[in-house]
């Protein structure tokens, strides 16, 4: 089984994010592996541990975007590749998906590609489906469980979490899978894993390595990024001598303000 995991480097979710001169800044908050992608790495590792094979983590980003890949290596991924080229700066997901699809192609003989549900910076959650479409492979998104995997028969059956309930889907492989948090509990990198990752050589693939000319130009523009207007909520504290008195007052206020 050959598995690729796509990981992205994103600012820590606890960071204070602001706009300075029209550019997004997260101060000195650390850049980490996109939290959703840890679940993707974990699931890939579990499949490998059960069925054998190898796990390759790939990330598209600037030259110094190695933290997410190191984390994947420290968790136990066999290889990591950084995809980086000045031609790839400023892509939107249309471009990112074409580059990642080419990356999966270069890894070659891949059975499964794992994605996180969404990246916590852009919050789009569409890259997995777009890569699947480019590869012509079925997309299994929002997966909460891999029910069964038959390598020789080339099929995978998963449980997906929809608004309407849980859905079982079976699919041919190769396939693209994006995971939700319920799927597993990601392991912490071991001390040995961290040592191995810190020494690992992470190769860089450029546009030329991928045989890509210019990826699709961004189709979208972002004329303005801004902080939401601060809603000055003054909390009205409801007090009273007994829970019943407090509850009664609160209920009355909710009705008065036509909240309900």
């Amino acid at each position: 089984m050959k598995i690729v995991v796509c990981v992205k480097q994103t600012p820590d979710t606890a960071a204070t994010v602001t706009v300075e001169d029209g550019k997004v800044s997260w101060g000195d908050a650390p850049l980490v592996i996109n939290p959703w992608d840890e679940y993707a790495v974990e699931e890939a590792l579990r499949i490998k541990e059960q069925d054998g094979g190898s796990v390759v983590a790939i990330s598209l980003g600037p030259e110094d975007a190695r933290e997410a890949l190191k984390h994947a290596l420290a968790m136990g991924a066999d290889e990591a590749v950084l995809i980086s080229d000045p031609a790839f700066a400023g892509l939107d997901s249309l471009g990112v998906s074409s580059v990642l699809a080419a990356g999966v192609g270069k890894v070659a003989d891949v059975d499964l590609v794992f994605f996180g549900r969404a990246s916590v910076d852009s919050d789009t959650g569409i890259t997995g489906s777009q890569v699947a479409r480019r590869l012509g492979w079925p997309a299994l998104t929002l997966v909460s469980k891999v029910d069964s995997l038959d390598e020789s028969g080339g099929t995978i059956t998963v449980e997906r979490m929809l608004e309407e309930g849980r859905q079982q889907v079976s699919s041919s492989m190769p396939a693209v899978v994006s995971v939700v948090k319920e799927i597993n509990e990601p392991r912490y990198p071991s001390f040995m894993g961290i040592r191995k990752a810190s020494r690992a050589e992470i190769p860089v693939w450029t546009a030329a390595d991928l045989g890509l000319g210019q990826p699709p130009e961004p189709a979208l523009a972002w004329p303005e990024i801004f902080a939401p207007a601060k809603v000055e909520t003054q909390c009205e504290f409801i007090e009273g001598d007994t829970p019943e008195e407090i509850a009664g007052k609160l209920a009355d206020r909710l009705l008065e303000e036509k909240v309900i």
Partner: peptide
């Protein structure tokens, strides 16, 4: 919304 709603982004088609 982007960054979990910490920021908002306007978007237009090119």
């Amino acid at each position: 919304p982007i960054y979990a709603g910490k920021l908002l982004s306007k978007i237009v088609s090119k």
